[in-house]
Design a protein around this nucleic acid. Structure first.
Lengths: 239, 239
DNA sequence: TTGTACCAAATTGAATACAAAATACAAAAT
DNA sequence: ATTTTGTATTTTGTATTCAATTTGGTACAA
């Protein structure tokens, strides 16, 4: 796949219309690699060799290196100096750890959101809930995951706390990775729309403590699911 | 200043003793720049030009670029494609936001630590508390900051949660930056040793809820200090 | 004065080149 | 057969080069 792109310059009297197509190669490469790691198309433990990736993507090593550095910061790859980069592995413990943190951050976000959400924003959040229900109804796994992620992300965004938003993104990404790697079949989550609605209502009520508790319980259930139902699936692979 | 270094290799029958001196230039550059940003020696808003930094440090642009990318991920610099990297600015709101998150994460860490701390680890933590008291007594600002950071970092480390440890580091770093930028005079924190001791005792008791609450209050006080006492200092500079 | 076209210098983006270290492998020695 | 040692190959680290874009300035016209 070739990532080269040409942008004809619109200069002179033309307005600088759509001049923001200049997505740096490093970012394109970064997103490509991230997607492949998250979805498991590049398996944990795989060595990521610069020349190989560069050739595959039709670019030089430079943007590949920069992309790998970014992935390292998100704990998606591990770099051993002078030895190369490897797609990071994840154990059940790490998965649970991540969910513990996510539970905490999301509860915080819900409590903050409850205090400051506006009428319009509430409507937007309602839409996310129905989107999710519809996705469940459709049975399309990809759509379900997206709708769920979107709902949770929205709540965090509504917290209005930039630091929180940024940290959560990174944690959410790791959760997403777990999903793809371990739970191809995600159908038992069908009861979640109810819980989403509960969170919505708690936020609507403006009761930040209630919102915190409901949200906390929601992620806690997901965590318990991973611990209990999931265990069996890992017996063979992780410590 | 020249960063070049030579390392004689110890191989053969020798144990791999101190073989980890091979610190890549990009990491040395990264830490140099990070230190300068955190301490405010490179002021917010400053443009970081690659050639300039490279010449100052006696290296080429490549490691400088990689260092800047890492700094971007920690929100210490902002990169505008094709335009350059700037040391990120911080507003009072962002500072408070960061402390809100830190408060939450640290409370979580304390509650986790309370549940799993061992005898030896408790002793180590006690030492951190006394270190801090001594630092206060000495009046050495640099030492005080280090001891305080160290105490809080230790608690998070004792949570045993890797995801938490990593996220906290990044948040703690931003807090540190606020300190250096806004509070050269940090003397009014002299009453903190008592609070540190309270946290220690709560963790010792093994009561995770108590640990959570005490820790939460501690950071909350710091936050309130920033909001109230700090406000006046920023009137001129931030939104 | 104000604004616009054009040019020159500076700067970033990406590719390539080169050096140093790690790895693989084969030959030699035990 | 197993270990050791020397050498070739591969791969990463860093420097350098080239290309594309931005920036700032100057001249000129409205």
């Amino acid at each position: 796949m070739d990532l080269y792109y040409k942008v004809e310059r619109k200069r002179g009297k033309m307005l600088n219309f759509e001049l923001q197509n200049h997505r740096p190669l490093r970012e394109i490469v970064y997103e490509q690699l991230k997607l492949q790691i998250l979805t498991g198309r590049i398996a944990p433990g795989t060595r990521m060799m610069e020349v190989e990736l560069a050739e595959d993507l039709g670019v030089s090593r430079t943007p590949v290196r920069e992309a790998i550095r970014k992935l390292e910061k998100e704990a998606l790859v591990v770099i051993e100096p002078r030895r190369g980069a490897y797609v990071s592995d994840i154990s059940v413990k790490e998965m649970v750890d991540t969910l513990v943190v996510r539970e905490d951050l999301e509860a915080l976000a819900a409590s903050l959101a409850a205090k400051r959400i506006t009428k319009e924003e509430l409507e937007g959040l309602e839409k996310k809930v129905t989107d999710y229900s519809e996705a469940i109804a459709s049975g399309d796994m990809e759509q379900i995951i997206r709708a769920d992620e979107s709902f949770h992300h929205r709540i965090v965004a509504l917290s209005g706390n930039k630091a929180l938003i940024q940290l959560f993104s990174s944690v959410q990404e790791l959760s997403l990775r777990f999903r793809y790697l371990y739970y191809e079949d995600f159908t038992r989550y069908e009861n979640m729309p109810v819980e989403h609605k509960e969170i919505l209502e708690a936020i609507r009520s403006g009761d930040s403590d209630a919102a915190r508790i409901v949200s906390d319980n929601h992620v806690k259930k997901l965590k318990d699911f991973v611990v209990n139902e999931g265990e069996s699936a890992f017996n063979s692979r992780s410590e």
